[in-house]
Nucleic acid binder design. Structure first.
Lengths: 343, 343
DNA sequence: ATGAAAGCGCTAACAT
DNA sequence: ATGTTAGCGCTTTCAT
């Protein structure tokens, strides 16, 4: 057992020497074994085992350019929504033997920029991104330089970018229409940064639904903008939401993740849901139905969203320039947190 | 609109030519700008901008060996527990400008092996791993070849591996002791694969607690082993758990993630929690307190666990061989799902 | 079937 | 202060 802690890793060079062949032959054993004579091949393979040879993926990538890693830039990996999307991505990529580097921006544009830069430098196979703002310039630049970019959970504002999205405007409209149906007329919307495309689209959908019902958003809707769409932020927003002489009878949350925080704060203050206030979330995360107030929410095909995005990334890396925009449909799932009609 | 899709990326070579300097100078501008004359530097920087120069991280890594990516191999990224751990890791790594590649094994040893191989080939800066089984051999090999390995949420069975863990045996004991206190004597344990260290340790703790109370585990405990510790698996296990002439009065779940599935199935079958059966989880995930049956659970310092692991990884990569084993203490949080004593 | 040699883009030592 | 050059480990022609 050779004690060799700090020894440099063995490369094909050492393997070649040990097997008494040239490095070219070792390379062939690695990449096209069928072209090497059986006896030679076995000798080389034995040498590899003995020297604990581990191929250097970095050198390989430098040679032929193609990375074996893709990057995903999301808003918040701790949000159960993204977590499920990430599983969809991972599973599809794994089939192509590609691993996934995940980065959370928390909605901050400067962190987004830094991650984009790092990933491009790292030579990733492609980038999946839920952007923190609508500014495709940087993304188009990156793509022009040869790194496929796919917008994740966000419709592309240009035909030159692939995207996989769910119709958020429709989702917002489904929610508000449901609440209006149930008689609500003073409604709060706890939103994330409106700079973030999803947040903007859901807000737009809510307003569209209001106007479609002949109601003035300015009169019936109060929107609160969180610094980032997290449970903690949602929790902290509740006092503000409930303040004033005419508190809302319903609260729409931009995500179930935010809704969780809202429900927590509501519970702590002893505000009954849905008795005193109705609550609606968005995403239909796994625990939505098991909460003390089973949460009305907008379902989205999360896992499929991830798979589809990975699919596009992979096919784009292969085939070249085809740009596809995929859109899924959301669906409202009514549960007790908002089921009852009010006076 | 320059149509130049497939153009090769510009490297320091092109920049040098455009700025009329040598590639060495360009490299200096990149790595020690202060050594370059101001006017030259500005000329080079302008050329970089004009040519949209993006440094090639792969080439750089090949040169000096150090990767800018770390790998984390976890059981299931969709489990909210890991998700929070992952955020802790990411945040610490980001300070050192290192990104994180996340891999989910779903508890399958063969997937673990493949990911280990891929990460090592990729030249990662280090590997954080929640192993699917207790077999440190492979990990020690990898570490000997120069890649730091840190066990994540798992105590090291050898002094040669760094680890960050929470005392799972104690956690299991806290849970069972609490239930015995409340009068429970027929208890089910819905566990994950016992091959997985955490699952084994929690089970051991439960049994230890039973024996400490002078009770025979064989008589009072029924353990069900899930193929993997997920909500769906937990949901499917409920019929089996409830079968037989003497169903349990309490169900311990190996994680809140599993508990969620169990609660869902229980709710669907109309079994009241905690009325007919008490339920205890493990991890104290964010939604635990807001469930329809606020869930008794074992709290763990998830985010800190991740940070500490990343810290070790980073310091090991720098300093060399110091091996540290960090252990955190769990804490039982009693909520309604198991608060009441039974007849 | 196998070997020799030219880079991939960059850094760092050394030379000027 | 700037230029020159030798690799990092591998794949891939092109010879033999």
């Amino acid at each position: 057992m050779p004690r060799q802690s700090a020894r440099r890793r063995n490369g094909i060079r050492e393997v070649a020497a040990a097997a008494g062949v040239s490095i070219g032959t070792v390379s062939n054993v690695l990449n096209c074994p069928e072209v090497v004579a059986t006896s030679t091949r076995e000798r080389v393979e034995r040498a590899m085992r003995e020297l604990e040879f581990v191929p250097n993926g970095v050198a390989r990538q430098l040679r032929d350019g193609r990375g074996r890693t893709a990057g995903a830039i999301v808003l918040d990996l701790a949000n159960p929504f993204f977590t499920e999307v990430a599983r969809g991505i991972q599973d599809r990529l794994a089939q192509a033997d590609v691993t996934l580097t995940v980065c959370s921006t928390d909605g901050a544009p400067d962190r987004e920029d830094r991650y984009l830069q790092v990933l491009e430098e790292q030579g990733v196979r492609g980038i999946l991104i839920t952007p923190t703002r609508m500014r495709p310039g940087t993304l188009l630049d990156i793509q022009r330089r040869g790194v496929p970019v796919v917008l994740l959970d966000c419709p592309s504002p240009t035909p030159d970018l692939c995207s996989v999205a769910v119709d958020d405007t429709l989702g917002g409209e489904l929610v508000i229409t449901h609440l209006l149906d149930r008689g609500h007329r003073r409604i709060a919307f706890v939103n994330g940064p409106t700079r973030v495309p999803q947040c903007a689209a859901r807000s737009a959908g809510v307003r569209r639904g209001l106007r479609a019902a002949g109601l003035d958003p300015a009169e019936h809707l109060t929107e609160v903008e969180l610094p980032s769409a997290t449970a903690v932020a949602g929790e902290q927003a509740v006092p503000e939401v409930l303040a004033g002489p005419h508190p809302p009878t319903a609260i729409i949350c931009v995500s179930d993740w935010v809704a969780l925080g809202v429900l927590r704060a509501l519970g702590r203050r002893g505000v009954a849901v849905p008795g005193e206030v109705a609550v609606v979330g968005y995403d239909d995360v796994p625990y939505a139905a098991e909460l003390y107030a089973p949460l009305t929410s907008v379902w989205q095909p999360k896992y499929e969203l991830g798979r589809a995005a990975a699919e596009l990334l992979l096919s784009k890396a292969e085939a070249g320039h085809r740009c596809t925009q995929v859109t899924f449909e959301p669906a409202l799932i009514v549960r007790e947190s908002s089921a009852a009609a009010i006076a």
